[in-house]
Design a binder for these strands. Structure first.
Lengths: 125, 125
DNA sequence: CGCCTGTCTTGACGTCTGTCGAATCAGAGA
DNA sequence: TCTCTGATTCGACAGACGTCAAGACAGGCG
């Protein structure tokens, strides 16, 4: 029985402020779940989880496809497909610079997900 | 996926101490990704994300299936299937007490996931 | 200009996932 | 004991997902 209004998601995943309290504090509304679940699903593949980590932990803040692909026993198109999935989930951002394409992480949505999973009340400060 | 390799001696998802540094700090090894990705995948469905939240935020620490099912427009077997998925991912624990079955969250693995996603606020200018 | 390197897109295939209806199992109560 | 309620399991189906091979596109260099 979701009494959520018919209006579309007002949840801004790019915001730096948490969109919602921790998952263990109050039940997430259906609308919020529908918005955040795809992000978790994008991280639900070992390859994408590693890709996300390699991009997010890159010292320069961005990672080249030419550097990501050889780290796996997968073909180029497959890696590209996974990167597209991460991009469509809003987890990373892509930019073509010359021959190579660079991927950069989006810390904001990562913070949203971490905040949702956090067990300790982070809002107390 | 039901055949979790019995050889994951290194990573203990039930431990309270973080198994690994944040995803944005250093690349996660393949083995760690293989162990944690199923947990993210389990949260990658809106219904399961809500179920997980309803269980984790229950005041008594546990939630009865009879209380979870009517919250969705889904049949009992479907809810049961999702709960099984959460259980096999190690996110919740089930216990039958009399007529009803109660589900309880496992904060440890939730902490693992949150720690992996955590981003230092200072990292953003 | 033409070739070469490097990446993305398309199409296809097998497998997994989400959902339901029907059947089965576990306890409680009369 | 028998029956009734509640939860899971089984069988089946449409749809989505992960993977690859082949082709198309963008940019650099001789």
């Amino acid at each position: 029985m979701s009494k959520q209004a018919a209006s579309l998601p007002v949840i801004d995943l790019t915001a730096d402020t948490p969109c919602c309290p921790p998952l263990a504090q109050s039940p997430v509304p259906a609308q919020t779940a529908a918005v955040l679940a795809p992000a978790f699903k994008a991280l639900g593949d070992p390859v994408r989880l590693q890709l996300m980590s390699m991009i997010a932990s890159a010292k320069s803040g961005e990672a080249c496809v030419c550097d990501l692909t050889p780290a796996f026993d997968l073909t180029g198109p497959t890696i590209s497909h996974h990167l597209k999935t991460l991009r469509e989930a809003g987890l990373v951002d892509a930019e073509r610079r010359g021959t190579w394409v660079y991927y950069r992480a989006r810390p904001a949505i990562l913070r949203q997900l971490a905040g949702l999973l956090s067990v300790e009340p982070a809002a107390v400060a």
